[in-house]
Amino acid sequence: MSGVVPVVHSLAAEGGIGRIDLGWQARRPYRPLVDHFAVYGSRDPAFRPSADTLIGKTIDTHLRHEGLGPRGRTWHYRVVTVDAAGRSSAPAGPLRATSVESVTVAGRPVAVVGEFDLRSLELALAPRGYADYPARFPDGADYVHGVSTPGTHWPYLHPGPADRWAGSRAHTFRLRFELPAAPAGDLALAVWLIDTHASIPGRLDVSCNGTAVGNVALENGATRGSLEGDATVPGTPLKPSIVELPLPAAALAAGENVLTLHKGEGSWHAYDAVGVFDPG
């Protein structure tokens, strides 16, 4: 069982908004037995793996580095294999990767509900008043930009058919906003969530003026966003996620536009903020 611990190969990365997904391949994972892969990362390309630069340990051949913020960030990664005897391989890498910038950073806000701040606290019923949702929002949300206010008209929790407390049915939220003229190019929608259900986060159907623009499988969360609303608290159990997608110019018009968020599958998701942006 002695010998050199094999170095992983085919280290690769893919950037997303606020995160970078890393993947690699293991050679002979059972001889010697791999205890775990340790992933190290730094903004400094000349970094050395150390306790300070440890991103995480995993038995998988992939790891998501998340919580990177809305701006595009470049990171450098190395992966070390640790075997059952506690021996480490030489580090694989370095690998350079960059996260994708959110449209909320440089885009011009057209219609925004709430603050993109990893908190649901400014929204209606937050942080744990979901039991009042059926009475307060029997028809979901119908939010008029410039007229409505987040704390009154946009519930922090958007239920789905798997939620018995909300009638075990689909729920639709609408955001109405004015455009002075039909846009020349696509706009962008940003839906930031502070949490989703851990096992049945469901899908979000997005349409604009009746035109379907996206059907997004939400990421599994921690099922805590119904009860707490601040994902910036150290050690928070909340698992935020981000959905951003284009709103095609052809689906938009001068005057009132109606953006529809329909939850026809799965359980609830908890909002951080929702916004339409002109990416410029």
Partner: peptide, 9 residues
């Protein structure tokens, strides 16, 4: 593939 590695450890 990942679960077999977990099962091994």
């Amino acid at each position: 593939e990942d679960f077999e590695r977990q099962r091994a450890v």
